[in-house]
Design a binder for these strands. Structure first.
Length: 273
DNA sequence: AGGAAAACCTGCGTGC
DNA sequence: TGCACGCAGGTTTTCC
């Protein structure tokens, strides 16, 4: 799945296909849980309500109705796609279908089932959402904010960037890409970074995420848009999953290490401690 | 308290 | 061909 750009793209993509605020006709749950139980009884109370709009907060996709919000997270392998109700195809790992009044159905598919589907009267009060840090593309994500936030913490900058209480939406792919673009070593302790480096990290975060949204998300493994087409950001990866290949800047070989259980890719010449 | 490791799952590529 | 292993876009829980 999807890091922020993929969710943002999906939000826009599905929104286009639901333009006339169709009413929810039915839910089909092919199973009662993903990683956590699905609050099916609560969710079914939304039948008959129109989907007013889709929003994104962090990597959560939010469907808003007059009686409350559906809160969806795609985990590592989840996708939503839109199909005609006439299509009888059911794919392996289709778990949830939302049938709506314009003849379409919105289908959630997730092989690993690390995703999430829940309900809240107002999404911003949902336990998964209320304690999240700022959006990376907002003005709240500033040098001033980062200094106060990282001041005490003993975290490497890579782990800080991926901590959703620090900033949301930066996953494992983009964390490596951002630090490469900013010329910052992934193991640098986050509280030791000077303001000009923090500024550079913020700029590169926004640049890379924005560019990726515009080109339709990452598509690294199995990512597809709601129309079934793949995104094509993978060709833009400069270090991610490129261990042993030459750095695009200096030809030094890209290296890989494990931080917090996740692979980090970096160039030991362009990113010094 | 706070950070590392494990847990939740399936699928795919590699190497023997 | 088959099997074992390592790895995968995320987040939460458990364990030191």
């Amino acid at each position: 799945m999807p890091e922020l750009p993929e969710v943002e793209f999906l939000k826009n993509d599905i929104s286009r296909q639901l333009s006339e605020k169709p009413a929810i006709e039915r839910f089909i749950f092919h199973r009662k849980d993903l990683r956590e139980p699905i609050p099916i009884a609560q969710i079914k109370k939304l039948i008959g309500e129109p989907i007013l709009k889709l929003d994104r907060r962090s990597k959560y996709l939010l469907f808003s109705t007059p009686k409350g919000d559906l809160v969806s997270h795609l985990g590592m392998t989840g996708t939503w796609r839109v199909e005609s109700q006439k299509s009888l195809e059911t794919r392996k790992h289709d778990h949830i279908e939302i049938w709506v009044g314009n003849g379409k159905k919105i289908i959630y598919n997730d092989p690993r089932r690390f995703g999430f589907f829940g309900f809240a009267l107002a999404a911003q009060d949902h336990p998964k959402i209320k304690d999240l840090g700022p959006e990376p593309l907002s003005e709240d994500f500033s040098v001033f904010y980062l200094r106060s936030c990282l001041g005490q913490k003993k975290l490497t900058i890579k782990q800080a960037l991926m901590d959703p209480r620090v900033v949301v939406g930066v996953g494992n792919i983009y964390a490596s890409e951002i630090l490469f673009a900013a010329g910052v070593h992934p193991q640098k302790s986050s509280h030791s970074l000077r303001p000009d480096k923090l500024q550079k990290i913020i700029e590169q975060t926004q640049m890379i995420l924005q560019k990726s949204i515009e080109s339709g998300g990452s598509s690294f493994r199995n990512y597809v848009h709601s129309d079934g087409n793949k995104g094509d950001f993978q060709s833009f990866h400069k270090v991610y999953a490129r261990e042993g290949k030459p750095c695009p800047n200096c030809q030094q070989l890209i290296r890989r290490m494990i931080q917090g259980g996740r692979s980090t890719f970096w160039c030991s010449y362009c990113q010094k401690l």
